[in-house]
């Protein structure tokens, strides 16, 4: 028997396509891990220039100020806006790095047995899937700022190349997390026999 992961309908093994919603049916997506790793690497590759190049270029009267993601957050903290600095740091440094680690951990752990139980790993997967999108916040901040702060002669803000790479990085890591087949978590459990409860 093979199940449709989109609409939960069950079909006899070997059915190529779900008759209800048209999704391709595979018992386990064998290329899942390959896709996860490929997208993961691209995401990581984009994340490096995103932190090296400037994210924002601020022109005030005669000075031009270019700040990277981390530089901008540090500057905010200097001005006393600790809350906002924390949001930026969490959204664009902690979450992406945590995501890279979590996806890699999940992809490795379905092959080898790890110290975590399946439930912990599933929780991790759900958190990664839910939270990944929130990294886009930095891109939106840059978009709003560079549209809004266009006061000729006084101050103008324009986006730097890092914005482009950062957006790509977020998109690729989201795709990477989506490519992961969570059913593999439970296969690892079945092999380990750590909890023989077949619902």
């Amino acid at each position: 028997m093979v199940a449709c992961t989109r609409c939960t309908r069950a079909w006899p093994l070997g059915t190529p396509e779900c008759g209800r919603c048209g999704a391709k049916l595979v018992s386990r997506d064998e290329h899942s891990l390959q896709k996860v790793w490929a997208l993961w690497v691209v995401g990581l590759m984009c994340y490096v220039p995103a932190n090296v190049y400037p994210m924002l270029k601020t022109k005030q009267l005669f000075t031009v100020d270019e700040s990277t993601i981390i530089g901008g957050a540090v500057e905010l903290a200097h001005h006393g806006a600790f809350g906002i600095a924390a949001i930026i740091l969490v959204a664009s440094v902690v979450i992406p790095l945590g995501k890279f680690w979590a996806v890699a951990f999940l992809a490795v752990s379905v092959r080898q047995r790890g110290g975590f139980t399946s439930h912990r790993r599933l929780l991790m997967y759900e958190v990664v899937e839910y939270i990944g999108r929130w990294s886009m916040i930095d891109i939106f901040v840059v978009a709003i700022l560079s549209a809004l702060v266009q006061l000729k002669g006084l101050a103008t803000i324009s986006p730097g190349p890092a914005a482009f790479f950062f957006a790509l990085s977020v998109i690729f890591t989201m795709l990477s997390a989506q490519a992961f087949d969570p059913r593999m978590i439970w296969d690892a459990q079945d092999n380990d026999n750590e909890a023989p409860d077949h619902g």
């Binding site: 028997m1 199940a3 939960t8 969570p182 439970w186 077949h198």
Partner: peptide
Amino acid sequence: LEGLIVCPVCDA
């Protein structure tokens, strides 16, 4: 099979 529902996350 019509009367079955399969969890998309864990295949139960």
